[in-house]
């Protein structure tokens, strides 16, 4: 008698809210067919204004170690990943837009081609960053003017005529938020080392038909970072993962808890 071992993983697919647009119907159709052919079709959950991705992810059952897969864009993936801190549930990603930085770093093709990566279920454990009591997946952004950065309680960094500071856990070391094929040689911030990367410089700017290139001035590596404002009582906003805003002063480090991410073979981390 021959026995065939079949392991059924549970899969939850969370569809980004922008995918409700009719123009994505065809792509989603192809993804669903591919998932069914691979035998990994699961429960589909569609995000909307009323359905918050963090709450949905937190409420999903952990029993049988299901895989949560985000179909959509980087920002939604960041939010879902942060909601999984401390859980053993792995998270996968099917990127819909071709300029996804996460897709590039995790070695994921876009659209239906990413289904094969989800099916292979190759998992990497990575760090998350922590800013005060909140976690972040990719980066923080702060205006460089009027701040003092202290690294590892050992040295201070003061900036002069520079506009932006980005602190990375995972990402391409750049100020832009999308990946361009021409920039293949860019350095990456690796979430598997014990350091956060601090990038200081000026982002690219556009004036009518003229585009000023971004300027990367400085790069530091630190485990603990404290940032204060040079001027008392001055509120300086910090953008967390390209979205949420908190204010100075902040204490930044790596979260002790890790998350499990489904990656492709061509990953850069």
């Amino acid at each position: 008698m021959r026995f065939r071992l079949i392991i059924n993983f549970m899969f939850f697919y969370i569809y980004d809210s922008f995918l409700a647009d009719k123009k994505y119907e065809k792509i989603l159709g192809k993804i669903e067919i591919r998932l069914t052919n691979l035998g990994i079709a699961g429960r589909n959950i569609r995000l909307s204004i009323l359905k918050n991705v963090e709450e949905i992810v937190k409420d999903l059952p952990e029993k049988d170690s299901p895989t949560i897969v985000i179909i959509g864009e980087d920002k939604t993936f960041f939010k879902a990943a942060k909601a999984l801190v401390g859980k053993r549930t792995p998270i996968g990603f099917i990127p819909i837009r071709g300029n996804s930085i996460v897709a590039k770093l995790l070695g994921l093709p876009i659209n239906e081609f990413a289904c094969d990566v989800v099916s292979a279920r190759l998992i990497e454990t990575i760090n998350l960053g922590k800013v005060n009591k909140e976690t972040f997946f990719s980066f923080l952004e702060i205006p460089a003017k009027d701040v003092i950065i202290t690294c590892d309680h050992q040295y201070l960094i003061r900036t002069n005529k520079l506009k932006k500071v980005r602190i990375f856990n995972l990402g391409l070391l750049q100020f832009g938020d999308s990946f361009r094929e021409t920039e293949e040689k860019k350095m990456i911030a690796n979430p598997k080392d014990k350091y956060l990367e601090i990038l200081i410089g000026n982002p690219s700017e556009r004036f009518l038909f003229w585009r000023k290139k971004e300027k990367l001035d400085s790069l530091f590596f630190a485990e603990k970072i404290d940032i204060i404002s040079k001027k008392r009582n001055k509120k300086i906003p910090i953008i967390v993962d390209g979205e949420k805003i908190i204010e100075l002063p902040v204490s930044i480090g790596l979260s002790r808890e890790l998350i499990r991410v489904v990656v492709g073979r061509n990953r850069l981390i």
């Binding site: 050992q154 040295y155 201070l156 960094i157 003061r158 900036t159 002069n160 005529k161 520079l162 200081i200 410089g201 990367l216 001035d217 400085s218 790069l219 530091f220 590596f221």
Partner: peptide, 29 residues
């Protein structure tokens, strides 16, 4: 190069690194 202390920054204190360091700006300490 790994750490880059660019022309637009000033570093003050005890800076210790295990990788290559390029200094284009100001360092005190």
């Amino acid at each position: 190069a790994e750490t880059i202390i660019g022309a637009g920054v000033e570093v003050e204190g005890t800076f210790v690194s295990s990788g290559n360091v390029t200094v284009k700006g100001r360092v005190l300490g």
